[in-house]
Each structure stands twice: as C-alpha cells, then as structure tokens.
C-alpha cells in the first residue's frame, strides 16, 4: 500500500469514500440475508421492513456519488486515487441495483407468503449465501486493493450460474407435474434470477477492483492474466 497523502484532508475524504462503500455493501448483504429469512419463514412483515430499508442504500448511493464528484472537482485526483474514485462511482451503482433486486425479491416473498412453500428451500439459501459472500469479498478486495481476491470472486460466478439453471430446471419439473404450483414456481424462479443477477453485480464490482489495482480494464474480455 502507498504512503498517506501529504494533504490529510484529502486522505480523510478517500477514507470516507471507502467507509461509505463498505457501509452500503453491509446494508446490501444484510438486506439479502433478511429477505431470504422472510422467504423461508413466509414473513411478509419482515419483507416489508427490508423494502423500507432500501432507502438507506439509495441515500448512500447519492452520498457516494456526491463525494466522488466533489473529489474529482476539488482534488484533481491522479493514478490510483483517480481509479479509486472512478471505481467508487461504479460500485455504488452496482450496489444500488442489488438493493433494487432485493426489493423485487421481497415483493415476490410477500406474494409467496400467502401460500405454503412449494418445497423445502435448500439450494436457494445456498445460492443466496454464495451471492452474499461474493458481495462481501468483492468489497474486501476493494478496500484491500487485492486483485487476486477479486479475480477469485469473478470465478465463483459460474457456480451461481450453475445453481440458477439447476434450480430453474427443478422448479419446471414441479410445475409440469402440478399446474397448481405454477404461481409459486414462477415466483421462486424469479427469486432465483434476482440472486443470479446480484451475483453478476458482485462480479462487476470485482472487475472494477482489478481495474483499481492493475489499471487494466478486464470487463467484457475475460479476466485471465
């Protein structure tokens, strides 16, 4: 890691940016966990609480963007500082989208909670845990400037994608056997798809972390070395 800035106010602002990103990531992780609990317990009240807490995530997105614009305008950042700020802007967008996906997930939970669960949930919570882990580790990699950890997160997206298709296949079988399960089956398929997209956003964050550390843009071209 580099030495601290000669200008300590600048240093403090960059620290503030890292802290806000971590806080926002923490809210997203917590929202996913709570939403999954609500799904399992068919607890629509809990789902509503998660939806109302999305405001916190949105507010942080605005604060992070404002801080980044201020840093760009007032500090004329260069090198790794510039990349930290550009990455911060992008990460805040990805986190905010994740927040919106959790809101969608909670809306499905509210619908699903009106009927008994179609089947015991095993793979979906596993998938949610994987996605949460990816979010947490992508942000860890951001704070620690760790490109190899970020690369590892990108690679784990395949596991989530495999689970996604497996779960969808399984639910389709249920739905074909029992047309009465179609509404619930579709709801769960959508939940699966939200989790898969959350993992995609975590992958985006990891790709930006690789840019942050190496100055190399790996988006849309594979992450090799």
């Amino acid at each position: 890691m580099l030495k601290k800035h000669t200008n300590s106010a600048y240093e403090a602002e960059l620290d503030q940016l890292r802290d806000k990103i971590l806080l926002m990531g923490g809210y997203v992780e917590e929202a996913i966990a709570q939403a999954m609990e609500a799904l399992k317990d068919r607890d629509s009240e809990k789902a509503k609480r998660v939806i109302s807490r999305d405001k916190l995530i949105n507010t942080l997105e605005l604060e992070i963007d404002e801080l980044c614009v201020e840093l760009l305008a007032l500090r004329q950042p260069a090198g790794s500082d510039l990349r930290l700020i550009i990455t911060g802007l992008k990460i805040s967008t990805d986190l905010e989208r994740m927040g919106d996906l959790v809101v969608n997930l909670c809306e499905r939970v509210i619908e699903l909670s009106r009927e008994p669960l179609l089947k015991p949930l095993i793979d979906l919570p596993h998938m949610a845990n994987l996605a949460m882990g990816m979010v947490r580790e992508a942000l860890d990699a951001y704070v620690k400037h760790d490109a190899s950890a970020a690369k590892e997160v990108c690679e784990r997206d395949d596991e989530v994608d495999n689970l996604d298709s497996q779960i969808v296949r399984e639910l389709l079988t249920y739905m074909m056997e029992k047309p009465g399960s179609i509404t619930r089956g579709l709801g769960l398929i959508m939940v699966t798809r939200y989790l898969e997209r959350i993992a995609d956003h975590a992958t985006n964050i990891s790709e930006m972390v690789i840019f942050l550390v190496k100055g190399k843009d790996v988006r849309h071209r594979g992450i090799g070395d």
Binding site: L2, K3, T6, A78
Partner: peptide, 10 residues
C-alpha cells in the same frame, strides 16, 4: 511516480 502524482511525497 505514483506517490508523486497522487500527492504522497514528503
């Protein structure tokens, strides 16, 4: 170079 252009010198 990184230290200089980002203002981390001295």
């Amino acid at each position: 170079t990184e230290a200089y252009i980002t203002g981390r010198f001295g």
